[in-house]
Amino acid sequence: MYFAGIDVGSTVTKAVIIKDDEIISVIIRRTGAEHRRLTNKVMEDVLAGPGLVLDQVGCIIATGYGRINVPFSDKQITEITCHAKGVNWLFPSAKTIIDIGGQDTKGIKVVNGKVQDFVMNDKCAAGTGRFLEVIAETLGVRLEDLGELSLRSKRPELVSSTCALFADEEVTGLLAKGVNKHDIIAGIHHGVASRICSMVERLKIEEDVVVTGGGAKNIGLVSAIERHLNLSVLNPPEPLITGAIGAALLARELFDKDRIVVKKEERRLEESRFFD
């Protein structure tokens, strides 16, 4: 039997298919505002890999920011529950998850794969991927290069503002003063990490700590977090898909325990109606 999880995030959509205890297909697609509704395309592609059709999937769970409007899913579960499940499967020793996404940053406390407590950032962009995106643009570098570049810094330059707008102005000022980019980026990472850690600290951080989401791919940010927490964190091989993995695992669990009635005839493999 196959099970699927689809995680519709604010910037990236992820889909995973599992069979038994194994991941057999993965799709990660950057989704701009316009493409966010094309979840059906992502699903088609993830099915196409192993040559499956929709009806062969026993249960599909949608999660993430856009979970509500996935017309072919059998149930929606929040990304918080899904991350906890997925991370627990990858790292049974994990007790704290820090998920750094495009719009949201979350801290999740896990006990035996179950969510014990969680926190999410307020509506401010500080401490999220969006903040780093703004800075990357001002510096004229690619978002994915921030991590590498910051490691070259010898003397991180403190950027004091936490407000994305003010920080952006401050960075412009630093550039004008001739401060090099590496040092600015390292300083930015330091600020973002401190913001994230003080939020997650509310959960009373316990080891092992796992970092997931787009932010986990930024090696500079991850090491800044490690310095702040004074411990080493675990990093999944593909940090973007833990939510989708968790969704697929939950699909299997609900199905096996007879806790869900799947109505395959009601699944419609069409666009998400996001903007209705």
Binding site: S160, S161, T162, C163, F166, E169, E170, G173, G191
Partner: peptide
Amino acid sequence: DPRDLPPVER
């Protein structure tokens, strides 16, 4: 919190 003070030039 000095982190919330607008930039001096402003």
